[in-house]
């Protein structure tokens, strides 16, 4: 009897403890095998979101959740006139592709493929203007510069297939990223984007927001070196901008809200600080979406309300989505 008790209360827990430790270790090796789920109630009413999860494209709203494109390499999805534009990413190049609203492939708008590795191109960060008639993107396709390559800004007319170069950093400055169009119908051909530079004294990289005005053909710098701004987004009426700014002493970034008028930023103020990426306005300008990470977990999509100069109610929309810079999402206004 006593021997049986000893077995039950010592040997079995001993093995159990060993097994639990081994199992916890196994589980702690974080993998992306957990399925992604959506908390649809946290999506703002009337919004339709599109995002890339592990290379597949999903469309999600308060009522529906659809996997539109099953793939491993489709990223950066954006809406265009009911259809979808994505970036197909390969090891050495990328292409911009068009799909029907149900996810059926239509055609390749820009292909970075070539016979030799030196001739291949990156095409990334597509953004569609208000009238769905132009697509801004960044690419290293201009090989005329020698030395260090970087991404220049282009605008594609999808009807003619012709691209126009808007700004090409030269000599090397660090490159361009994240173009976005002004949705305001009076300034709908203005493009806002990140421009990376190096401080000539410290040689440290920083970024500023550049605005290209189609009316004047001029480029204006909207932010300061100290703000170290990047990843900007217009409100649906084009009167406000949210953007991120890096801190020198922290991995957390500042979330800025600013008024926008006549090509100038006014009253840029910090409304929150966190491990954020890609703040984007909802169709309701009181709300924004952004990627956020807690601890060292990978990024998930959240919605949040702007109240005065603060951000309140951070609500999680995706769970275990493992989102990152390649999962850039789009909101249909």
């Amino acid at each position: 009897m006593k021997k049986r008790l000893l077995l039950i209360y010592s040997i079995i827990p001993l093995f159990l403890g060993y097994f639990v430790a081994a199992n916890l270790t196994k589980n702690s090796q974080h993998t992306s095998s957990e399925a992604t789920s959506f908390v649809q109630r946290n999506i703002i009413a009337n919004d339709k979101l599109m995002l890339s999860i592990n290379g597949s494209i999903f469309s999600v709203s308060q009522k529906n959740e659809t996997k539109l494109i099953s793939s491993q390499n489709e990223i950066d999805p954006v809406f265009i006139n009911g259809s979808i534009i994505t970036v197909l990413r390969n090891t050495n190049y990328s292409s911009i592709q068009k799909f029907e609203s149900n996810g059926v492939y239509q055609n390749t708008l820009l292909s970075g493929d070539a016979d030799s590795i030196d001739s291949m191109d990156w095409f990334t960060d597509p953004s569609v203007n208000r009238t769905n008639s132009r697509i801004a993107y960044v690419s290293d396709k201009d090989k005329s510069q020698t030395g260090i390559p970087d991404n220049a800004l282009y605008v594609l007319n999808p009807s003619t297939g012709k691209s126009t170069q808007i700004e090409n950093p030269y000599p090397y400055s660090g490159g361009i990223a994240n173009p976005t169009w002004n949705p305001d119908k009076n300034n709908s051909n203005d493009i806002l984007y990140d421009y990376y530079e190096y401080d000539p004294n410290t040689l440290q990289p920083y970024s500023v927001l550049h605005l290209y005005s189609n009316q004047t053909g001029l480029v204006t710098t909207l932010t300061t070196e100290k703000q170290n701004a990047f990843q900007a987004s217009f409100s649906p009426d084009g009167k406000q901008i949210v953007f991120l700014g890096r801190n020198d002493d922290s991995t957390l970034v500042n979330l800025y809200l600013a008024n926008y008028s006549n090509g100038q930023l006014q009253n840029a103020r910090i409304i929150s600080k966190g491990d954020f990426a890609y703040p984007t306005f909802s169709s309701n300008p009181s709300f924004i979406y952004m990627l956020e990470s807690t601890g060292n977990q990978s990024y998930d999509l959240y919605s949040s309300q702007i109240k005065g100069n603060s951000l309140i109610n951070l609500n999680q929309i995706t769970q275990n989505a493992m989102l990152d810079g390649n999962s850039f999402f789009d909101v249909s206004f």
Binding site: I8, I12, P13, G17, Y18
Partner: peptide, 18 residues
Amino acid sequence: ICFILAVVSFLLGYGIYY
């Protein structure tokens, strides 16, 4: 006593793995 024995054994097993 049985409970304490079980807990100690569990922790011991856990520790042995580490």
